[in-house]
């Protein structure tokens, strides 16, 4: 009797085990499916509308065929340059502080925590803050401020880069063996020199990768640009003027009712995603190869 009951239980347990395995596999497939679907659509619809004009021409008025997003590509480049000029140095500096000076202190722990929390603040909120700080007409004491401009969009994106760059820099610096820091100190090298020329340089492939990751993330950001950089359907390279950006242009075209514009939106999305996939793969490659150049 007892034996029979046990074997029935065992069977139930075995069936449950198989069922759960099946469910887990199903979940994985369900998660991968949209990824595959998104890429298939991007390639199918994007590649068919991608041509030389896309990279060399500016948008045509509604109803006319052709045109491209050259101004948006250049605009995105300018915005990202401004963002990197703000986000990369400050972020790396913060990371250096966390890893080299503040290790284990309460100050460093709270900065680290704040950086993680800041990373989760929605980009639209960053946009509102950047608007209030730079675009809002109340503070037009500088000629470049007080209206929509490329500068304000770049600042919003740059601020968003800081926590990401800071945290990855810290993590990469922590991977540099302590022995190497000691070697530099033991030679009587000044601390600032030892940090910059030895520790940071040793971790530089990892730090560059972290910057690329932050770069890729803000390259696709749209929300903070809507009311800072605003967008522009003509050529503009001035920091003081509203400027076009690739994700912004995709948004405007995607919600428009015109097929021709939808076509361009897909092409733009394909360009954007190729850029991002390249960055992520590079990151993956560098980190899997070992973060440190020449580390044994």
């Amino acid at each position: 009797m007892v034996k029979q009951k046990t074997s029935a239980q065992t069977r139930i347990r075995a069936v449950t085990d198989h069922a759960v395995t099946g469910l887990a596999i199903a979940a994985t497939v369900l998660v991968i499916a949209p990824l595959v679907a998104i890429f298939v659509y991007l390639i199918l619809r994007g590649a068919s509308s991608l041509n030389l004009d896309f990279f060399t021409k500016i948008p045509k008025p509604v109803g006319e065929k052709g045109g491209g997003m050259a101004n948006a590509i250049v605009g995105s480049g300018i915005l990202l340059a401004v963002a990197s000029a703000i986000g990369v140095p400050i972020g790396i500096g913060g990371g250096i502080f966390l890893a080299e000076f503040g290790r284990g202190t309460r100050l460093a722990n709270s900065i680290r925590f704040t950086a993680d929390v800041l990373n989760g603040v929605p980009s639209i909120v960053m946009g509102v803050a950047a608007y209030a700080l730079i675009v809002s007409p109340h503070i037009s004491f500088l000629p470049m401020l007080g209206h929509f401009s490329a500068l304000s969009g770049g600042v919003a994106l740059g601020i968003m880069m800081i926590p990401t760059v800071c945290r990855t820099t810290e993590e990469m610096l922590l991977m540099v063996p302590h022995a190497i820091r000691e070697a530099a100190l033991g030679l009587g090298v000044p601390n600032w020199r030892s940090v910059l020329s030895i520790t940071v340089k040793t971790a530089s492939p990892g730090i560059i990768t972290g910057c690329m990751l932050a770069f890729a993330r803000v390259a696709g950001e749209t929300a903070p640009l809507i009311f800072t950089a605003l967008g522009n359907s003509f050529w503009s390279t001035s920091l003081n003027e509203p400027i076009a950006a690739l994700p912004l242009q995709i948004y405007v075209y995607a919600i428009s009712p015109y097929d021709e514009w939808h076509r361009l939106a897909w092409a733009g999305a394909l360009v954007l995603i190729v850029l991002i996939v390249l960055a992520v793969s590079l990151v993956r490659y560098v980190t899997s190869r070992g973060v440190l150049k020449g580390a044994s």
């Binding site: 994985t28 998660v31 991968i32 949209p34 990824l35 679907a37 998104i38 659509y41 991007l42 619809r45 890729a216 993330r217 390259a219 696709g220 950001e221 749209t222 929300a223 994700p247 995709i250 948004y251 995607a254 919600i255 939808h262 939106a265 897909w266 999305a269 954007l272 995603i273 991002i276 996939v277 960055a279 992520v280 993956r284």
Partner: peptide
Amino acid sequence: LAFMTELLAAIPSIIYGLWAVFV
């Protein structure tokens, strides 16, 4: 598989939106 889920996290919001609207 881990790489694919990572990639899913790197796709910008605007591309999800575009895909959602049309597909």
